[in-house]
């Protein structure tokens, strides 16, 4: 098939990708079938929809981790000025945007039978996810609007840092804004607002799901980084050729 001999690194990533795929399938099985039904929820629809929870929380988790990685990589870029850190920042931000969007969509799916609405501004976490998504869409748009690679990396790093600092402040603001917070896991009053008690197998399923999503993050990050390396190299050659002619 491939003409060149695979390096150890490539083999590692192929195996790692395969294992991640299998684990995700197991995770899907656990979330949809193996995990017990949240019996305290009043309707069957709510009980079924609750199963998106594993997916929803994991996607949200990966989103925030990804944006955290972007912020750290941005700081490192400004200090070290190595293109690698900028590649890491943009790759992680893109993955974060995808997962945060997935988090919002799955949140909507869950909200529909539970709160009888696709969207509610009363849930601070949902609101925060929407704000954070906008911050990182702006981050990607900023990158898109700058041609020079050095300038792009530098200015995007600055925005990546400022944007990340704003997240906790936004969280505090929406938290004070809507002090009623539904869906708090495990508290007695929570069940009336769509919350539910977590049994042991539910916790295991959630942790496993977060684990597999984190693996998926690393797999995607790896391939996105390879792509970015090649894209940057191509860009530099293009610039050199254009400058020469």
């Amino acid at each position: 098939m491939t003409a060149h001999k695979r390096s150890g690194r490539e083999t590692f990533w192929m195996v790692f990708t395969g294992i991640t795929g299998v684990l995700i399938l197991i995770g899907v099985y656990m979330s949809l079938i193996w995990a017990p039904t949240a019996l305290n929820l009043p309707t069957v629809n709510e009980q079924l929809a609750q199963r998106v929870f594993y997916f929803h929380v994991s996607a949200g988790w990966v989103g925030y981790v990804a944006f955290g990685v972007t912020a750290v990589a941005s700081v490192l870029y400004l200090i070290k000025r190595s293109r690698r850190f900028d590649n890491l920042a943009v790759s992680s931000a893109e993955i974060g945007v995808v997962f945060t969007a997935a988090n919002l969509v799955s949140g909507s799916i869950w909200a529909r039978p539970t709160w009888n609405t696709w969207w509610t501004w009363d849930d601070p976490r949902l609101t925060l996810a929407a704000i954070v998504l906008m911050v990182y869409i702006a981050y990607l748009m900023l990158r898109n609007a700058i041609d020079d690679p050095e300038r792009k990396a530098r200015l995007a790093s600055i925005y990546g840092i400022v944007g990340f600092i704003s997240v906790p402040l936004s969280f505090v603001s929406v938290r004070i804004w809507r002090t009623i917070h539904p869906a708090v896991i495990g508290t007695a009053s929570a069940s009336s607002q769509g919350g539910f008690d977590m049994s042991g197998n539910m916790v295991i399923t959630l942790l496993f799901s977060i684990f597999t999503f984190s693996l998926l993050y690393f797999v995607l990050l790896h391939y996105r980084l390879c792509l970015e390396d090649q894209r940057v190299e191509l860009e530099e050659y293009k610039m050199a050729v254009m400058a020469d002619s």
Binding site: A138, A145, D147, S166, V174
Partner: peptide, 26 residues
């Protein structure tokens, strides 16, 4: 920052508004 981008003036509100939401809410 935005004067160094292609879109310039258009870029500023896009960059600024998501980050200034705490100020707006408060």
């Amino acid at each position: 920052l935005s004067i160094n981008t292609r879109a310039r003036e258009v870029m500023l509100p896009i960059l600024l508004f998501p980050v200034m939401i705490p100020v707006f809410v408060a």
